[in-house]
Design a protein around this nucleic acid. Structure first.
Lengths: 204, 204
DNA sequence: GTCTATATCCAGATAGAC
DNA sequence: GTCTATCTGGATATAGAC
């Protein structure tokens, strides 16, 4: 029956997402190699062997996490760019949203750290490395374009747009690391500390 | 003979340092679990079994790296604090030195990333975790004290000293990640982008 | 779909010759 | 001190019953 086939497909997808969601925090806190398939299975509440009905291997899970993370991040970055706001407003919104998300959703920090470490690891599936190389520049370029546009408008201070984008994103990544080190005790700093890089006249 | 005993001790130390030095970059790029003892041994040019004459286990190597890293970093931070400079000069020197070291010495980035990831990992030797918990706040507190002193002098802008210290160090950590992702192509941004968080009037 | 049991492989650590 | 050979444990992935 077509009906139950569709339902089955949906249930399968949900189960796969549950596995991915459990795997993210394990991969982020232990790394790919130190995370046992048995750990993931037990975190999601299934037998170790069953996991192989949903994914072909531990590495496939890892690749799928990386793929989805870039899908979401880069979509969000492109949508921000298209909003009817001034460059300055877009930068401020990005900083505010990112720091709030970081504080409220630990998942965001896990994924950020997972990608950060995967970016420099050579013990990661080749397909993950390929996705990272292909996608990682998108958010940097968006912020750099905003910085350039803001400087043309005279709204921003100097500094090379690429430098500003670099420091902007590396600070976010660094805060994600810190957020995981501190756990629930973490509080994001005032976003103006970040935007002040772009607008030195900003008062705190 | 006492003479050759001393020499032997020294040679042993040098050999141990060579092992640590090779292990750092492997641990940083692959993580503890994915780094094989055979990899370390071959990087330093010795047989796998011989490595156990210098260290009792792979984990002991890891702990020793963490211990030495904090020794150096925290010593440097405390020495900076004691220099006969104004708070502002100390912040500027720290930013300049860190960004230059990051660019010139890849080792510094390796160690930074190793510590960052170890800080949030629960797949790391308990002794390493203990050292990290005990030592990690030192550099943050030094910068926070400098920020507080600068604000008293009226040299710095507002912002909570703890926030400033947090963003300062997380940016450095974030840049270390970036430096490894980019390899030799990496160029540190202008240090004024960093110090501008403390002194908003700084022009680029 | 789900489980238990197991084949297979691989890496850490040790033993023992030189 | 240095090597080669090996023991041993543990983790991935598969097989096969339910």
């Amino acid at each position: 029956m077509a009906r139950s086939a569709v339902q089955n497909e949906q249930m399968r997808d949900e189960r796969r997402q549950a596995i991915l969601s459990s795997a993210v925090r394990l991969f982020a806190t232990r790394g790919l190699a130190a995370t046992k398939v048995a750990d993931i299975a037990s975190a999601v509440g299934m037998a170790q062997g069953l996991l192989y009905h949903y994914f072909r291997s531990k590495e496939e899970i890892f690749v799928e996490i990386v793929r989805q993370a870039f899908d979401r991040m880069n979509t969000a970055a492109r949508e921000l760019e298209r909003l009817p706001l001034t460059p300055r407003q877009k930068i401020e919104r990005a900083a505010t949203t990112l720091l709030r998300t970081l504080e409220e959703h630990e998942d965001f920090a896990w994924i950020s750290v997972l990608i950060s470490t995967a970016s420099i690891s050579d013990a990661v599936p080749a397909e993950a490395t390929a996705i990272i190389r292909r996608e990682r520049d998108v958010p940097y370029r968006v912020v750099a374009r905003l910085a350039r546009a803001g400087q043309r408008d005279g709204a921003f201070e100097g500094g090379r747009p690429d430098d500003l984008a670099l420091v902007f994103w590396t600070t976010v990544k660094g805060l994600a690391l810190h957020r995981l080190a501190l756990g629930a005790a973490y509080k994001s700093p005032d976003p103006r500390i970040l935007t002040r890089m772009f607008f030195p006249e900003t008062r705190a």
